[in-house]
Each structure stands twice: as structure tokens, then as C-alpha cells.
Write a protein that binds this DNA or RNA. Structure first.
Length: 802
RNA sequence: GCAGGUAUGGCGGAACUGGCAGACGCGCUAGACUUAGGAUCUAGUGGAUUCUUCCGUGCAGGUUCAAGUCCUGUUACCUGCACCA
């Protein structure tokens, strides 16, 4: 059997017959299965893609056989740095590079037989698509959700571009690994922080995997506490945020952020201006990395000439500057309680500041007694006037109450999640459809003029000064103000690559729509993405951006649900055979094309499903792959045993029914590896038979079809059946999944001593008698007193003796 | 440091609400067929053993007639976040 030929044959058949067309509005029940669309990079499809695409493909094919109207689409996330860099490196226009790469990817996907509805294909770089990305940006802008602000941003000196906090995680550039530094730049921002609470609450309406939900919760980073006003001697005040208001009597100093607004206000009153300014400058030079990893020493200096007043005791308290306080979190200032916070403790030691212990229970001369150690332990307050003797939990309430009554505090939630920096100094992204006019300021482009196309130019490399390459193209930049018609300039920054992927799953529901990004009726029909799969590396950010985007659209009435993704799961990586991440430098990369050529797409698909727990990483093993080839060969060999017959063989009835049931359950649990092993067992059982009927064979082929679609279609055709793709999933009969007689173990004192065959109608007494008559069991209970006998139906017998 | 996850033969991994640990596959051993085998088929394969048992799911305890599974403690590795007040 020439698998290359039959694979091509069936791929053509499916395409010609539109076998996988998803029809919006069909009477069948809709089911939307999604995989993350890839960056069409120059290196082609990775075996990791094959794993998740096959898993979802098998699910899609199975659901179609079960009668669902399945939407399983594919497209291309082709904007962004990887495509641009590839183009620069290979000296071609990104547009052409992307076209080329998409072709490669699509061919590879075709050769794997994925059942995508190719009629719905699009790329985020298509003007017909990014027109709507731009249109949605304007919606953000019109609703006050997009704004431009000069902010200290993460800057990658190598890529010459601004990075979002997410892209600069850990203080290094996500793309090139270069150290990120801080730079002030005027950037478009989306007010994602306004959605913190909604994004948190919305998780309840989803069925994301627990670890995925947790990832979201961690990014949002909610903490509940108290914002407290603090007066300054000789006038003025500032606020601090704390989650430990119970330690208020332990305050011995305040610390404010060197990069925050507060210090700018206070600066005129500071006496040691030079020292303070020096420290501020120093902080600016430090990258994120320095502030977190390399420089945990508690640097800083006191603000001379400024003192705070303790809100309750009215004592004078010094104020310090310290870069362990962040300007953009909370109020940019903290109350420092060195006895009960390790950072404050270290700072106090470094600057010789006194400490007051206010919670009893630990010696605080060498380290702080922190909240994670005292909370919920019944620890009591000391040195806290009328609150002495209260537990921490009681004091938290009482002190908060007192401060609120005094009018100097309020309960506040803070979130780590910041606004989304939406500007990139890049060529290869969606142009931001904004125009700056000296008279009118920022003006949104007219919707009618969208899409704002990227200019066709030869030079698209980033400029030295960090401006977008678009800034050099004066034809494009110079335009007229939509408001006053005077001379104006276009925004030259482009959108981040996360933009296009934040709503692509909506477009798939209605990809050809020319007058809206997707019609409400189409979105209502498909309702939600039922099952979304992607890598763990995207679960935090991409999912958060996409959910934010959708929630915004929902709030302005443009999508039917606040959450448009119901189930989200993440697959494990395919590692190299040495158990390390596949990479060119390690020489452990497996190219799917080579495997398809040598073993066929069906074997590769089967193997990737079989290789291990779907959510866990798994190393590549060509040996195991060969085992899967043997399995497929066995299925082919079975054809020689087939005799006419439209009934299931009596001898196979049980195992067939059991297998169908097991496989359905496994699809729900994403246990793809046990689906394959169940099919292997079924095949092995068939092989033991003298003859099998056409019906036996047809059922096996149908069950295997979602995973190995080509060879099963071919074999099915050879025995004269209509194509599986036009048939339906076999039904099982619950009654026939139960064996009449089974063998169960017999234990004595919990140790296995024998086994017996039992039938369904046997009474417990009969089972016990049978057990006791077992040779080996007899030996172990002889001359001993039987204390207890436990019979678990169809499972086990345990005789307890003394 | 914080949060989460994982730990089962030589290897990848099975084991539903606690109920015969090691399914299935790889590898290995022996045999058959072969000029040949890196093809195929058959049998075996957790360890130890006095051949009947004993020991075995990271480690130490506990609950139970019964624990990979539940509880307490602990170790190692992986992932994410990381001076977030």
C-alpha cells in the first residue's frame, strides 16, 4: 500500500467534496474547535504544531461523525517581529516572506490531512482583516479606552523597540534575549487595568483548565488592602497602600518611589536636592533586571527637610526614597514597618532606622515577623494602644474602621496588571489609524478610509533613533487632518502582534463579511469557542488580551457573550529525543516533512497522539513511532480476514462496545494516548480471530479514522463501503459493555492469594464460598478465625483472618 | 521567596468514585521463517527468591479490611511570577 498516494487521493477527495465545510446557520448543533493559528515562520511547521493540531483535528472529525456542525478553522498570525526579522535577514519584503511561508505551512498542513475549513482562511496581514483590527482600535479610542501618554517603557536596544511588560518579562527581551532598559516614550495605551476585576470575575463563566485560570489570576494580581492618607509636616499629604494595616503602630518611616510622581511634587521642599536627584537618575539607568535581580540591596536616601506625621500617634516620621518601591503600583509610596516586612527590615538595617514590633510571637532582631507567618495563627497585637491584645484579624477590622471614621483611609483593591502598551516602533504591524494635527491634536481616522494600508516601500528596517520605519516615508506620513483639513501627520507606530490574535476567533465565525468584523447573527449561531487549545506559553498573555478585547466589545454591544472562549486547554511540548527543548543549535529538531515522507501522515499523527499525556511534555522517539507504524500495518493486514457480514461477530461484541465507550470518554478527557492504546488492543483482538465481518472492520476503521484518516478511508473503500467522512460514529450498547463472567482477585488480609471467575448473577455468599475453596486461599485461612469478609461486586474479595 | 505542577520497570506511559499496580507501546531475551534482518511471527520480560513467598508507585509517618490514589510532614525536579507594599 503506497501511503503517499492514498494520502494525496483522500486529501483531494475531502477538498473537492468540501467535506469539512462549516455552514453558519445549519440545523445541526454547532461545535467550534480552535487551535492557535501559527506565525508562519521560515522554518516551517514544528512537530509541536502537529501534536496539538492533530489532537484538535481528531476531536473535530469525531464530532462531525457524531453529527455536529463543526467549525475547525485555520489562519495566519503573520504580523510581528518574527516575520519582519525573517524578511530583513533574507532581504525580501515581509509581505512576500509571509506569502511564501504561508504557502509552506499550508502545504504541510494539507499533507497531514487536517480537516480545516479552508474557505475560512485568512491572515492578520490581509488588508480585509486588519481593516477591522484598526476599526476596533478606533472603537477603543472613541470609548476613551485608548490614550497616548509619555511613560517609562521597556526598551530593547537590540530590536530598537518598545516592549510590553509581558514581552519584557524577567528584564530581558522576549525576542532576542537582550537586557531591557527603561526609556521615556510617548505610547498608545489601552486601558486594560480598568478591566482587572471583570477579567477576574469572568473566569467563572469559563471552563478553562485550572492551571490556565491560575495563570490569569496571577497576571491580574489582585490584592486587597487599605489606602491611607499621611500628612506632611508644614502642609501637604500623600497616600500609601498597605495590605497590613494591623501593623500601623509599627511604622517608623515611609518610602516613596524614585520614578513616581510624588517625588516630583515634593522636590522643591527637599533640602538635599542633589543627592535625591542623583538617586533618581541612577534609578532611571537601571533596567528592570537591575532593580529586581542584581540589585536587591536596599539603596536609597532620606528626604531632608520633609517629615510625615504618623496618622494615629502624630509622631514625626522620616521619609526615604528607595527603588524597591515601584512608581506605577499602588500609590508609589509605602508605609514601612521593619519589624513585620522583610524588605522594610533590610532597608531599616541599611539606613539605621528604629523598629517597633507590634505583633507578638517571634523575635525580630534578625529578621521580620511577616504576615504569612502571623496570619491565622492567633497572634496578638502589642505596642498598639487600644488595640493591644486583639488578634491580628480583629485588629485589621478595628483599625481599618477607625481610620475610615477619621476620614483618612479607604478600602482599596490593587492589581499588578497595568495598561497595555499598544505601540511598536515597527514596520510590519497594523498601522494605528490616528492622525496628529497641530491644531486639533490627535484625531481618529474616518472609518470610511479604513483600512489604512501599509505603504509599499523598500526600506523597512528600524531606524537608529527608535522611531518606526514608517516615520521615514514622508508621502505616507503627511496627510490632512480629518477635522480641519489642515496639514497633519499620521501616527507612525504600529500595533503589537497581539492585536490581530485578540479577536481572530470571532472573524472565523464570519470571515467574508465586508461590512462588519463579524455579524451578530453568525456569532450568536456559533456562540463560543467550545474548545480552544494552544501552548502554555500563550495561556497567560494572549488569552488575557483576547479576553479583554472581547469584554470590551461585549460592553459596547458588538459580541453576544462576555467570554467568547469556553474551554481552554494547553498541550505539552514535544521535546527532542534527549529530553531537551527542540532547537537547531542542539541538533535535535525533527522535521514533520521527513517523517511524513518515510512513514506517512497517518503514522505521524497516530504517534503524536500516542506519545504521552497530552498536557505533559513528551520526548520524541523514532522507535515508538515505528511501533505505531506496526500498528497501522496490522490494521491493514486485517483486511485479509474480512468476510461478508453486516453484523458484529458475536465473539467481538463485548470488546467493540467497550472500546467505543472508552474512546468517547477519552475524547472528553483528552486522553488521546489511551484512545490509541484502546484501538491497539481492539486490533490485536481482531487479529486473534479466524475471520472478521465487514461490519467489525468498518467499526474499527471508523473509530481509528479521526486519528489516521487516510488509511482508514482507503481500507473502508476497499471493502466496498461509502466514505467514512459521510458516515457516522458507531453507537455502543451499555448492556453489551458488561462482561458476563469476569475474573476477580481474592485477598487474605489484604494480600492477593488467588483469583476466581464470577458471573453477574452470583450472590455474595456464592462468591465467598468460591473464594474459600481456592487452593491457595484455603492454605492461608486454614486454622484461623475469619473476622470479616468483604465482597466488592465485580472487583475484589478480601477475607480478614486472625 | 511566592504560587502551581510532577515523581510509577531499562524507556514513553496506563490504573474510572480507594479495590488484582505496571494496560498499550518501545527496548531487551529466546525461538521460528530466512542467504540475510534494522522485515515478520511465537513466547517471555518490575526486583529478589529457599519456587513459595517477600519487596515494590520520590522519602517518612498516618487513616482503612484494602492506599499510586485520601491525610500530615519532607525531598528533588519542572513551570510561572518575582522588592506588587
Amino acid at each position: 500500500m503506497n501511503f503517499n498516494e492514498i494520502e494525496k487521493k483522500w486529501q483531494k477527495y475531502w477538498l473537492d467534496n468540501k467535506s469539512f465545510e462549516a455552514v453558519t446557520g445549519s440545523d445541526k448543533e454547532p461545535y467550534y474547535i480552535l487551535v492557535e493559528f501559527p506565525y508562519p515562520s521560515g522554518s516551517g511547521l514544528h512537530v509541536g504544531h502537529v501534536r496539538s493540531y492533530t489532537a484538535q483535528d481528531a476531536k473535530a472529525r469525531m464530532m462531525r461523525l457524531k453529527g455536529y456542525n463543526v467549525l475547525y478553522p485555520m489562519g495566519w498570525d503573520a504580523f510581528g517581529a518574527p516575520a519582519e526579522q525573517y524578511a530583513i535577514k533574507n532581504h525580501i519584503h515581509p509581505k512576500d516572506a509571509v506569502k511564501e511561508n504561508i504557502k509552506t505551512f499550508k502545504n504541510q498542513m494539507m499533507s497531514l490531512g487536517f480537516s480545516f475549513d479552508w474557505d475560512r482562511e485568512f491572515s492578520t496581514t490581509d488588508p480585509e482583516y486588519y481593516k477591522w483590527t484598526q476599526w476596533q482600535f478606533l472603537e477603543f479610542y472613541k470609548h476613551g479606552m485608548a490614550y497616548k501618554e509619555k511613560v517609562p517603557v521597556n526598551w530593547c536596544p537590540n530590536c530598537k523597540s518598545v516592549l510590553s511588560n509581558e514581552d519584557a518579562a524577567g528584564g530581558v527581551c522576549e525576542r532576542c534575549g537582550e537586557q531591557v532598559i527603561q526609556k521615556e516614550k510617548s505610547q498608545w495605551m489601552l486601558k486594560m487595568s480598568e478591566y482587572s476585576e471583570d477579567l477576574l470575575k469572568g473566569l467563572d463563566d469559563t471552563h478553562f483548565a485550572p492551571k490556565v485560570k491560575l495563570g490569569q489570576i496571577n497576571w491580574i494580581g489582585k490584592s486587597t488592602g487599605v489606602e491611607l492618607d499621611v500628612d506632611i509636616v508644614d502642609g501637604g499629604k500623600f497616600s500609601v497602600f498597605t495590605t497590613c494595616i494591623e501593623t500601623i503602630y509599627g511604622i517608623t518611616f515611609f518610602v516613596i518611589a524614585p520614578d513616581g510622581k510624588l517625588i516630583k511634587e515634593l522636590l522643591p521642599r527637599v533640602k538635599n536636592k542633589e543627592e535625591v536627584l542623583n538617586y533618581i537618575e541612577e534609578t532611571k539607568k537601571k533596567s528592570n533586571m537591575d532593580r529586581t535581580e542584581l540589585n536587591k540591596g536596599k539603596t536609597g536616601c532620606i528626604l531632608e527637610g520633609i517629615e510625615a506625621i504618623h496618622p494615629i500617634t502624630k509622631k514625626r516620621v522620616p521619609i526615604f526614597l528607595g527603588d524597591f518601591v515601584l512608581g506605577d503600583y499602588g500609590t508609589g509610596a509605602v508605609m514601612a514597618v521593619p519589624s513585620h516586612d522583610q524588605r522594610d527590615f533590610e532597608y531599616a538595617k541599611a539606613h539605621n532606622i528604629e523598629m517597633i514590633q507590634v505583633i507578638e510571637g517571634k523575635d525580630t532582631t534578625s529578621s521580620a515577623f511577616e504576615k504569612q507567618d502571623y496570619l491565622n495563627t492567633g497572634a496578638k497585637l502589642i505596642n498598639s494602644e487600644e488595640f493591644n491584645g486583639l488578634t491580628v484579624e480583629e485588629a485589621k477590622e478595628k483599625i481599618t474602621e477607625k481610620l475610615i471614621n477619621m476620614g483618612i483611609a479607604r478600602k482599596v483593591n490593587n492589581y499588578k496588571m497595568r495598561d497595555w502598551i499598544f505601540s511598536r516602533q515597527r514596520f510590519w504591524g497594523e498601522p494605528i489609524p490616528m492622525i496628529h494635527c497641530d491644531k486639533c491634536g490627535w484625531v481618529a481616522m474616518d472609518e470610511k478610509d479604513l483600512p489604512l494600508l501599509l505603504p509599499d516601500v523598500a526600506n523597512y528596517e528600524p531606524t537608529e533613533d527608535g522611531e518606526s520605519p514608517l516615520a521615514n516615508i514622508s508621502d505616507w506620513v503627511n496627510t490632512k487632518c480629518p477635522k480641519c483639513n489642515g496639514p497633519a501627520k499620521r501616527e507612525t507606530d504600529t500595533m503589537p502582534n497581539w492585536a490581530g490574535s485578540s479577536w481572530y476567533f470571532l472573524r472565523f465565525m464570519d470571515p467574508k463579511n465586508t461590512h462588519e468584523f463579524a455579524s451578530m447573527s453568525a456569532m450568536k449561531y456559533w456562540n463560543k469557542v467550545n474548545w480552544y487549545n494552544g501552548g502554555m506559553e500563550h495561556t497567560a498573555r494572549h488569552l488575557l488580551y483576547a479576553r479583554f478585547w472581547v469584554q470590551f466589545l461585549y460592553n459596547i454591544g458588538l459580541v453576544p457573550n462576555k467570554e467568547m472562549i469556553d474551554v481552554r486547554v494547553s498541550h505539552g511540548m514535544v521535546l527532542g529525543s534527549n529530553n531537551e527543548k527542540m532547537s537547531k543549535s542542539k541538533g535535535n529538531v525533527i522535521n514533520p516533512d521527513d517523517i511524513i515522507k518515510e512513514y506517512g501522515a497517518d503514522v505521524l499523527r497516530t504517534y503524536e497522539m500516542f506519545m504521552g499525556d497530552y498536557e505533559q511534555d513528551a520526548p520524541w522517539s523514532t522507535e515508538t513511532l515505528k511501533g505505531c507504524k506496526r500498528f497501522i500495518d496490522k490494521v491493514i493486514k486485517l483486511k485479509d480476514k474480512v468476510v461478508d457480514g453486516n453484523e458484529i461477530s458475536k465473539s467481538l461484541e463485548k470488546i467493540i462496545n467497550k472500546s467505543i465507550k472508552k474512546i468517547e470518554l477519552d475524547y472528553d478527557n483528552m486522553s488521546y494516548n489511551t484512545i490509541v492504546s484502546t484501538l491497539m488492543i481492539l486490533t490485536n483482538t481482531y487479529l486473534e480471530q479466524e475471520k472478521i465481518t465487514k461490519e467489525d472492520y468498518r467499526i474499527l476503521l471508523t473509530l481509528l479514522n479521526p486519528i489516521a484518516p487516510h488509511v482508514t478511508e482507503e481500507l473502508n473503500e476497499m471493502i466496498g463501503n461509502t466514505p467514512i467522512v459521510k458516515s457516522s460514529w458507531p453507537k455502543y450498547d451499555e448492556e453489551k459493555t458488561i462482561d458476563d463472567t469476569i475474573e476477580i482477585g481474592v485477598q487474605v488480609n489484604g494480600k492477593l492469594r488467588g483469583s476466581i471467575k464470577v458471573t453477574n448473577d452470583m450472590s455474595d455468599d456464592e462468591v465467598i464460598n468460591l473464594s474459600k475453596n481456592q487452593e491457595n486461599v484455603k492454605k492461608h485461612i486454614e486454622g484461623k478465625e475469619i473476622i470479616k469478609t468483604i465482597v466488592i461486586k465485580r472487583r475484589i474479595v478480601n477475607i480478614v483472618v486472625k
